[in-house]
Design a binder for these strands. Structure first.
Length: 392
DNA sequence: CATCCACAGGAAGGACGGGGGT
DNA sequence: ACCCCCGTCCTTCCTGTGGATG
C-alpha cells in the first residue's frame, strides 16, 4: 500500500517536471514569434498602417485552411495596431462560428466596443444602428476582425457585411475597416458583388504548413512548454507527420502534443515518447466523438440508436422504418422522413455516421449508412438519457 | 437507350419559446 | 398590454438525379 501511494506521488513529481509552461500549448496562446508568416504579417501591417494617421485602411480578406495561422497573425497585428494608436483605434474580434448567430455576432461586437445592448429582443437592423451610433458618439476608429466569416455568410447572408462595408457613409469623423478571415476559398461566390468589391480590396492567402514547417513550429513550442529533454525529436517528427498528413493544421498539431504530454504525465513517463503521442491521437479522436454524441438532441440520439441495429449498414428507407418503431415505442413524436434525412446529413457531418449516396439503378437512389461508434460508447450514451433506457 | 425508382436536398413557412420596445 | 424580433426544430411541397432494368 505504501508503495502504491509513493508511486502515485512520485509520478506526480516527475510529471510536474515534464511541463514547464503548459499554457504555451493551449489553443488561445499566441506565440511571440510566428514562424513562416513574416510575409503575411508585413503585408497586413502595411494595409493597416494608414489607420495611424486617421485615414481608413482598405478592407482585407484572409484565406486559408484551419490551422494555417490566419487568426494568430491577424490578432497579433491588430493588437499591435491598437497598442500603437494610444487608444484611438479599437479592434474588436469575433469568431462568427463560435458565437453562432448573426445576432450574437453583432452583440459581441457591440460589447467589445463598449456599447450596451440587450442579449436578445432587438432586430438585426436596430442592433446595427446602435453599434454605429456608439462608434459615432465616441468618435472611434475601428478595425473589426470577423473570423470564420464564411460561416456567417453561408448560414445567413451577407447583409451584415453589406452594412459594415458601407460604414464610411455612417461614421463621419472616424472609420470602420473590416478584416475577414475565411477557411473556405470559394466562399466569395455567394457574395453580393458590391460587398465583394469592397471587402476584397486586399486579399491574402495563407498556405498550409508543410511537415517540415510544422516540425519547427512544434519544437519551438515544445521548448517553451516542456522541460528541456522531455520531448525527444522523434516525437516531434511523428507529431508533425501526423498533423501534416491532415492538411498542415498547426492548431491540431499543437493540441496533439499537449495531450501527449498529459498522457506521459499521467503514466509517469520521464519523457513524451512516440507511444504517448499515438495514445494522444486516439484520445483526441475519441473525445471528439463522445462530446458530439452526448450533446445530441433526443431525436438524433434515437436515429443513431436505430442505425446501430444494422450491423452491416442500412439505407435511408430501412433506417427510417427502424427509427419510426423505436420512436413510437418510447412515445416520442415521430418525425417526417425529410427531417430524418436532414438529421442523417448532420450526423454524417459530425463524423458519427458515414452516409454515402449510392444508386441502385431502377431500384432508386439512397444513402448507404454506417455507424462509426462502438456499442460500448453507444450504451453509455443511452444510459445518460432516461427516455432511452428502454432501448438497451 | 429511355425509363423510373427511392430517395436527395432546396425553399418557404409555421409553431413555439425567449426576449425585447414603447 | 401589446406587438415585434430572433433562433430552433419541423413540416410541406417541391424539383433533381445515377444507373440497372426492361
Amino acid at each position: 500500500m505504501k508503495d502504491q501511494i509513493d508511486e502515485i506521488f512520485q509520478r506526480a513529481k516527475e510529471g510536474k517536471a515534464l511541463f514547464q509552461d503548459r499554457k504555451a500549448l493551449s489553443p488561445e496562446y499566441i506565440p511571440e514569434n510566428l514562424p513562416f508568416r513574416t510575409k503575411q504579417i508585413s503585408e497586413i501591417a502595411e494595409v493597416l498602417a494608414p489607420a495611424l494617421h486617421q485615414s481608413k485602411p482598405s478592407n482585407l480578406l484572409l484565406y486559408g485552411k484551419t490551422g494555417t495561422g490566419k487568426t494568430a497573425v491577424a490578432r497579433r497585428v491588430v493588437q499591435r495596431l491598437a497598442d500603437q494608436s494610444n487608444g484611438t483605434i479599437q479592434t474588436p474580434y469575433v469568431n462568427t462560428r463560435i458565437v453562432g448567430t448573426e445576432y450574437r455576432t453583432l452583440s459581441e461586437i457591440a460589447a467589445q466596443l463598449g456599447v450596451e445592448v440587450p442579449f436578445t429582443g432587438l432586430s438585426i437592423g436596430e442592433l446595427v444602428s446602435r453599434i454605429f451610433k456608439g462608434i459615432q458618439s465616441k468618435g472611434a476608429n475601428v478595425v473589426l476582425v470577423l473570423d470564420e466569416i464564411d460561416y456567417l455568410v453561408n448560414s445567413y447572408n451577407d447583409d451584415i457585411l453589406y452594412e459594415f462595408t458601407r460604414a464610411g457613409e455612417r461614421i463621419t469623423p472616424g472609420f470602420l475597416s473590416l478584416i475577414g478571415i475565411s477557411n473556405n476559398l470559394t466562399f466569395k461566390e455567394g457574395l453580393d458583388p458590391r460587398v465583394l468589391s469592397s471587402l476584397g480590396e486586399e486579399e491574402l492567402v495563407f498556405p498550409p504548413y508543410t511537415t517540415e514547417e510544422l516540425r519547427l513550429i512544434l519544437s519551438e513550442r515544445a521548448a517553451v512548454a516542456f522541460r528541456p529533454g522531455a520531448v525527444p525529436e522523434a516525437t516531434i517528427n511523428l507529431c508533425a507527420a501526423l498533423a501534416g498528413s491532415e492538411h498542415g493544421d498547426a492548431r491540431r498539431a499543437v493540441d496533439l502534443l499537449r495531450v501527449a504530454g498529459e498522457v506521459a504525465e499521467r503514466e509517469g513517463k520521464p519523457r513524451v515518447d512516440e507511444e504517448c503521442l499515438r495514445k494522444a491521437s486516439d484520445k483526441v479522436e475519441r473525445d471528439r466523438i463522445q462530446e458530439a454524441l452526448f450533446s445530441l438532441p433526443l431525436q438524433n440520439k434515437i436515429i443513431i440508436l436505430a442505425a446501430s441495429k444494422f450491423s452491416s449498414g442500412s439505407n435511408t428507407g430501412e433506417l427510417y422504418l427502424a427509427y419510426t418503431n423505436l420512436a413510437r415505442k418510447s412515445g416520442v413524436e415521430v418525425l417526417t422522413q425529410r427531417r430524418v434525412s436532414g438529421i442523417i446529413a448532420e450526423l454524417d457531418l459530425l463524423g458519427l455516421i458515414e452516409a454515402t449516396i449510392v444508386s441502385k439503378g431502377r431500384r432508386g437512389r439512397t444513402k448507404r449508412i454506417k455507424i462509426l461508434i462502438d456499442d460500448e460508447t453507444l450504451t453509455r450514451m443511452a444510459k445518460e438519457d432516461a427516455q432511452l433506457l428502454d432501448f438497451l
